[in-house]
Design a protein around this nucleic acid. Structure first.
Lengths: 343, 343
DNA sequence: GCCTAGGATGGGAACGGTTCCATAGATCTC
DNA sequence: GAGATCTATGGAACCGTTCCCATCCTAGGC
C-alpha cells in the first residue's frame, strides 16, 4: 500500500529489473497481452508495479505505436454554454473509450484556429472534433489528407470530407415557426449572428426565409448582427421592430443562445414586455425560466450530439470505417414552451 | 506555397535529407539555436520544412527532454460558469507561454479525480491546476513529491504544499454583509452547498457566522444542502425562511453561482418577490440582470485568477522558484448592485 | 527417441526527437 | 608558421515504449 514515492518517474526497465523479468514481458503485461504470461510472472510484475508506483509514459507509447490516445477538440467559444455542454459529453465519451481530450479554444479567431490545428497535429491526435468556423484552411486539409478523422459539429464544410453532427436546422426553424403561429404571432423578426462561415446559421436563416415565403398570413424580417454586450445596433434593430406600427402580433426568434441572451438584455433595457411581444430562442439555457415570464426555447440534444461526434471518430479509427463516405447525423430539437410565447 | 501533402507525417530526418544537412542542424534550427547556423543553412532548412509541410512531433520532443509543454487542469464541474471562465483564462495564459492545456472534468467525483490525476501524470504534464475537491489523494501527493508544480484554485489543502489562488473569501462575505446591512436587511439566510472538502466554502460559512456573532442587530441562519435542480429540500428551507414571522427585513445570501441559480428557481416557484426579500449571490452570471429586478452579485476576478494560477506554475517551473514556500494569492470581489437588494 | 509445434520469455531495433562530443576548417596569437 | 581558439557542422547515444524475431523448453505425434 504505502509505496515509496520514487524521486522521479520509474520506467518500464526499472519495473522489469525489480520483477526480475524482461521489459518485453512488462510491456506485454501492460498492453493487454497478459494471457501470454504465466500467472507467476503476472504476479511478480504486478507487485513490482505497485512497489515502484509505476505509470507508463504516454509520450513514449505514442511515439512507437503512433497511438497517442488523444482526441483534439476545437471550440469556437468556450464561454458559450452550448459548446460547453457538448464539450462535456465529448469528453465523457472519449474517456469512456480510453482517449483523452485536448481542448483548444479559438475565440472565434481564424488565426488561432489554424494555430491550434497545427498544434493538435503536432501532438499526433488521433481524431479531431471541430466546433468552429472551420474554413477549409491549409492546416485542416493537411490533417484530413494525412488521414486524421475529423468531425464537424454544427457546421459543415464543402471542401473537406468529414462527418457532420448537429441539429436538424430546418426542422428546428419549422418547429419554432409552427409554435409562433399557433400562439398567434404573425410578424416575426429573426435575429442571428452573421451567417458567414457558419453553415448552420445559413441553413436556419435560409429556412426562415422559406417559411416566410410560404405563409401568406405571415410577415417578417431578419437582422444579422455581431452580438456583443450592450450593442447599440441590436438595440436599434429591436427598437425599430417593436415600435413600428403593426396590427399583427409580433415575435422575435433568436438564432442561438448568445443571441437570446443579448436580445433579452436589450428588450429588458427597452422595457418591452415578454409574451405580448413573443420571444423564442434556439438553445436552452439554465436561466430561461427565470427571465420575465420565462423564455420559450428549442433545446438541442447536446448530450447526443457529443456522443455521436465521438462515435463517428471511433468508427473511422477502426480499419473498415476508415474511408467510408462522409456521414451526416442530424438531431431534432425539443420545444420548451414558457411565458415568453404566451400572449 | 502549394505544399505536396505528405501521405503521412514527415520526420526531422526527412527534412534533413531534403535540405542536405544533418538532423542535428534541423533540430537546432527548430530549437531556437538558429544563431549557431549559417544563413545559407537556415535558408535551406526553412525551404525543406516548407516543402515537406513538416511539423515537429511533440511526443518525441517530450520524450528526450522531459518537456511535454503540457499543463493539466482538473475541473470539478465544467458546466459551472465560474470554472469555465477561469479555464478560459488559464488556457490563454498557457498558450501565451507556449504550453497547451489538457483539461479533465471530474464531475465532482473523487474517483474520477484520482484517475485523471494519474492520467495527467502519464502524459508528463509539467504542471497542474486543480479546481476540484482535491482531497490529498495518493496520486496528488505522488505528483507533488515527484516535483510537478501544483496550483490549487479556490480551495486549499493542508497536506500538500501547493500554491493557492482564489478569492478573498472573508472579504467577500464582509462586502456582502455590509451591503445587505446598508440596504436595511436584518435577517439573513446563508445558503451553501455542503462545505466538506471545499475550503473556500468553509471559509465563507465561517465568516458569515462570525459576522452574525459580531452584529447584535442582525439575526440569521444557514442552510447547507446539495444543490440539484428542483430540490425539495431547498424549496422547503426557503419556504420556511420567508414564511416565518419576522419583523426584520429578510435577505438570502448565496454562497456561489450554482446556489444563486437554484435559489432563484426556487424563489420563483414560491412566488417570492425579489427586493422585498433580498437576494445576493457570490459569482456574477450573465443573466443576473435579467431575473426579476436583477440579482445583486459579487463578481470574482476570474480573469486574474486564471492568470495568477499559470503565473504561479511558471515561476515554479523555472529553477530558482522550484521549491519556494507555498504562496497564497487572494483577490477581492467586486459588488454589482441590482434590484434584488433594493427594498 | 527424434522431430516438430507451440507456448513462454528475452534481446534488440525501431519511433522522432535532443544533446553531448568530436571534427574540420577558419581565424588569431606570438 | 605552428599551436591555440573558435565556429559551423555532423555522428551517435539516449529518452521509454512497442514489436518483431530468436531462443529455450515442454509436450505431442509417429
Amino acid at each position: 500500500m504505502s509505496s515509496l514515492p520514487a524521486a522521479s518517474h520509474s520506467t518500464i526497465l526499472e519495473v522489469a529489473r525489480d520483477a526480475g523479468v524482461s521489459k518485453t514481458s512488462v510491456s506485454r503485461y501492460l498492453g493487454g497481452e497478459r494471457h501470454r504470461l504465466s500467472p507467476a510472472m503476472q504476479a511478480r510484475i504486478a507487485a513490482a508495479i505497485q512497489r515502484l508506483g509505476y505509470r507508463p509514459n504516454q509520450m513514449a507509447r505514442g511515439l512507437k505505436g503512433g497511438r497517442s490516445k488523444l482526441i483534439g477538440m476545437l471550440v469556437a467559444d468556450i464561454r458559450n454554454p452550448f459548446s460547453v455542454t457538448v464539450l462535456h459529453s465529448v469528453e465523457q465519451a472519449c474517456r469512456a473509450r480510453g482517449f483523452s481530450l485536448l481542448v483548444c479554444n479559438t475565440d472565434n479567431d481564424p488565426d488561432q484556429e489554424r494555430n491550434h490545428l497545427a498544434l493538435l497535429a503536432s501532438y499526433r491526435v488521433e481524431g479531431v472534433v471541430i466546433n468552429a468556423a472551420g474554413r477549409p484552411s491549409a492546416e485542416l486539409k493537411a490533417l484530413a489528407e494525412q488521414g486524421t478523422p475529423i468531425v464537424l459539429l454544427d457546421r459543415s464544410l464543402s471542401d473537406v470530407d468529414a462527418d457532420v453532427v448537429g441539429l436538424d436546422n430546418a426542422g428546428a426553424i419549422d418547429m419554432a415557426m409552427d409554435h409562433l403561429l399557433e400562439r398567434g404571432y404573425r410578424n416575426v423578426l429573426y435575429v442571428s449572428e452573421p451567417p458567414e462561415g457558419a453553415s448552420s446559421r445559413q441553413r436556419r436563416l435560409e429556412r426562415f426565409r422559406q417559411r416566410l415565403a410560404q405563409a401568406p398570413e405571415l410577415t417578417g424580417e431578419t437582422a444579422c448582427l455581431a452580438m456583443q454586450r450592450d450593442s447599440d445596433a441590436l438595440r436599434q434593430a429591436l427598437h425599430g421592430f417593436v415600435s413600428r406600427e403593426s396590427p399583427a402580433p409580433r415575435a422575435i426568434l433568436c438564432a442561438n443562445g448568445n443571441v437570446t441572451l443579448q436580445v433579452a438584455h436589450a428588450l429588458n433595457a427597452l422595457g418591452v414586455s415578454l409574451g405580448e411581444t413573443g420571444l423564442l430562442g434556439i438553445d436552452e439555457l439554465d436561466w430561461c425560466a427565470l427571465a420575465g415570464p420565462g423564455i420559450t426555447t428549442l433545446a438541442q440534444p447536446t448530450e447526443a450530439i457529443g456522443q455521436a461526434a465521438v462515435e463517428s471518430l471511433m468508427q473511422r479509427l477502426a480499419p473498415p470505417g476508415r474511408q467510408a463516405p462522409p456521414r451526416r447525423t442530424e438531431y431534432a430539437a425539443r420545444l420548451i414552451a414558457r411565458g415568453s410565447t404566451h400572449r
